[in-house]
Each structure stands twice: as structure tokens, then as C-alpha cells.
């Protein structure tokens, strides 16, 4: 599915070759077409109801900034889910990493040495939490849902202990200068999201790591008998999701200029929703980074459109729920159809 993910669909194809169109609609490209249409409809709705306020460069940047943090988490989540797992802990790990990177000790060291100390701290915390998840799941044979649920609770608690439930203001100016800057008129945070997505796409579709992920998620028994070290690869997948949470923590620090044990609450659910809506199979074995990016954009555009129209957060939640169910129903239909042909 890697190649078809990005294959161009011209309108000529659609008009002259219904057979080709049908095949594309039932394939991976078809799912992405559905996502493009959904995003398009949302934008039309936004323009109609909010006009200039919605259709402006400023607002576009707002949407992208909103999408960036969840987006990075979602790319990591795409790997875990494609590999047949689930990671409920990424939101808490984000919070823990944000706190650990902003302790007095870390910030002092960052001021004396380099701002990157804070980045490394956040990434190391993320990787460490992912390592614990991965080892518990791959070698301890704990069900992924339970192991990461435990990590979700424990990481949040640890973050509260370290921060003593207080917000930790970032006072390393060099750090803020770097991450709150803009490049070509676009926030650094959005660039980071873009970079993570591109690296994720290449990793999933063009490398042996991606191939192993598909194999481990698609049929772990077959992968094992083919000589793939399923346990080790599973650990890598959770470490990767943890590192993504660490990157997201850095972005969160930049956006809010503070570390807090409440950062990232329920983000894991937003990330899972974006991944599933994007077309990655929750059962594993099939994943799409492009779809995930669309999923993230759909949700952040939805939030933006609803906010522009002064609709309540509760109404947003209802709409999100409907979208998730619709996407999964569609996914099952498509899966059933590819199976029967």
C-alpha cells in the first residue's frame, strides 16, 4: 500500500475509467480520497459560516499549530498500532517529559550549557517510558492495553510528584527563542510536525524497519517463523512512540512556555482517533502516515470551525464521536470488500 498511498488521482481517470476509480475507491487511495473530501467539506462549512475569519492565513496557521502536538504523537501511535499494539500512555508521558525538562536542575543546566539539554531530557524521558512499555509487553507478555494503561497512570503520578503539582515556567530564553520562532512565516512547531511526518512516512514505507512493523502487526506468528525478532521489534515500536511523546513535550513547552503535570491529558485518545480515522487498521498490519496526518487535520479543523461559530466544546465532542464511528464503519466495509475480491 506504500506506493498507492501517494499515487496521483486525476479527474480524467475518474471520468473515463469507472473501473479504475472503483478500484482506487476500494484501495488505500480511496480512503485518502474520503479524507480529502471530509476535510474539504469541513473547510466549505468553515468558509460559509465564518467567512474571512476562517479563510485567512492567520487562521490556517492557528489550525496547523493546533494540529502539531497531537500530530507528532499520532505519527508515533501509527507505528505502534500498525505493529499490532496500542499505547495509552503517550499523553501522560508527554506531561512527565514536560515536567522533567523544566525542573530547576534541568533548566539551570540548560542555561549553563545549552538549551538542547531540555530537549534531550524530554526525549530521554519519552524513550525510557517507551522502553519500559515495550519490555513489559514484548518480554513480560503483559497485554499492551494494560501495560500502557499502567504507564499512563504512573507517569502522570510521577509528573505530579516531581512538579509538586505546580506549573514550571520555562525561563531558558534561548530555548523559547528557538521553538517559538517562525521560519518562512510558519511556526517552528509546524515544521517539526512536518518533519516528523515525512520521516515517519519514509520509515514506514521505505525501510526494513517499516517492513518489519507491517509483518509483526499483520501476522506475528508468520513474522517469527520467518526469523524476525518480534519481541525486539515490539520494544522498538514503543520506544519510538515514547520518543514522539518526548518531541511533543518539547513542542508543548514552547507553546505554553511552561512544564506541567497536566499537559497532554487525554491526548492519547485524540491520537488514537486520528490514526484510526486516517485508515490505519486497529488490528495491525496496515498503516498510513498520510492518513494519520489527514486525521489530525480533520480534527483540528473541526475544533477551529466549531470555535469560530461559538459552538460548545460539548458539541465538538459529539461531532468527533460521530466522525470516529463513521470512519471505522467505512474501514470495515472496505476491508470486507478487499477480502471478498
Amino acid at each position: 500500500m506504500s506506493a498507492t498511498d501517494l499515487s496521483p488521482v486525476t479527474s480524467a481517470d475518474a471520468v473515463t475509467a469507472p473501473g479504475v476509480l472503483r478500484r482506487m475507491m476500494s484501495g488505500a487511495a480511496g480512503r485518502n480520497i474520503g479524507l480529502v473530501i471530509a476535510l474539504g467539506l469541513l473547510c466549505v462549512f468553515g468558509v460559509v459560516t465564518a467567512g474571512e475569519r476562517f479563510a485567512s492565513i492567520d487562521n490556517l496557521m492557528t489550525i496547523l499549530r493546533l494540529a502539531a502536538v497531537i500530530g507528532v504523537l499520532s505519527v508515533g501511535m501509527t507505528f505502534v498500532i500498525t505493529g499490532g499494539g496500542i499505547d495509552l500512555s503517550v499523553g501522560s508521558v508527554l506531561g512527565l517529559a514536560s515536567v522533567w525538562a523544566t525542573t530547576l536542575a534541568t533548566q539551570t543546566m540548560a542555561e549553563n550549557l545549552h538549551w538542547s539539554v531540555m530537549v534531550f531530557t524530554a526525549l530521554a524521558v519519552g524513550a525510557g517510558a517507551g522502553l519500559v512499555n515495550g519490555v513489559l509487553i514484548a518480554y513480560g507478555k503483559v497485554v499492551a492495553f494494560i501495560a500502557t494503561l499502567a504507564m499512563m497512570v504512573a507517569a502522570r503520578g510521577l509528573a505530579e510528584m516531581i512538579a509538586n503539582r505546580q506549573t514550571q515556567i520555562v525561563h531558558v530564553d534561548t530555548f523559547l527563542d528557538v521553538f517559538r520562532a517562525e521560519l518562512l512565516g510558519v511556526s517552528v512547531l509546524v515544521w517539526i510536525f512536518a518533519a516528523v511526518a515525512v520521516v515517519g512516512w519514509v520509515l514506514l514505507n521505505r525501510t526494513t524497519f517499516g517492513r518489519r512493523t507491517l509483518a509483526v502487526g499483520g501476522n506475528p506468528e508468520a513474522a517469527r517463523l520467518a526469523g524476525i525478532n518480534v519481541e525486539r521489534h515490539t520494544v522498538y515500536l514503543y520506544v519510538l512512540a515514547g520518543v514522539a511523546a518526548g518531541i511533543a513535550a518539547v513542542m508543548m513547552l514552547a507553546r505554553t512556555t511552561a512544564g506541567s503535570s497536566t499537559h497532554g491529558q487525554l491526548y492519547e485518545l485524540d491520537a488514537i482517533a486520528a490514526v484510526v480515522v486516517g485508515g490505519t487498521l486497529l488490528a495491525g498490519g496496515r498503516g498510513t502516515i498520510v492518513g494519520t496526518v489527514f486525521g489530525v487535520l480533520i480534527f483540528s479543523t473541526l475544533t477551529n470551525v466549531f470555535t469560530q461559530n461559538n459552538l460548545s466544546i460539548s458539541a465538538q465532542a459529539v461531532a468527533k464521536g460521530v466522525i470516529i464511528v463513521a470512519a471505522v464503519l467505512l474501514q470495515q466495509r472496505l476491508a470486507a470488500r478487499t477480502r471478498s475480491t
Binding site: R211, G218, N219, E221, G227, I228
Partner: peptide, 29 residues
Amino acid sequence: KRQGLLLDEPLYRNITLSSFARFARAGFL
């Protein structure tokens, strides 16, 4: 079907499942 194949993957990936690393340079297939 249960222990051997990646049923939804193309045939060539099933054939190279235990040797695909050979077709990679620095991890890129």
C-alpha cells in the same frame, strides 16, 4: 494462513519476508 503468510500483503513481500534485509542499503529497501 495463520502461521505463514501476510495475507493482505503482496506476494513478493511474502516471498522475501525472511530475506528482505538483503535488499536494503542502510535500512532503505
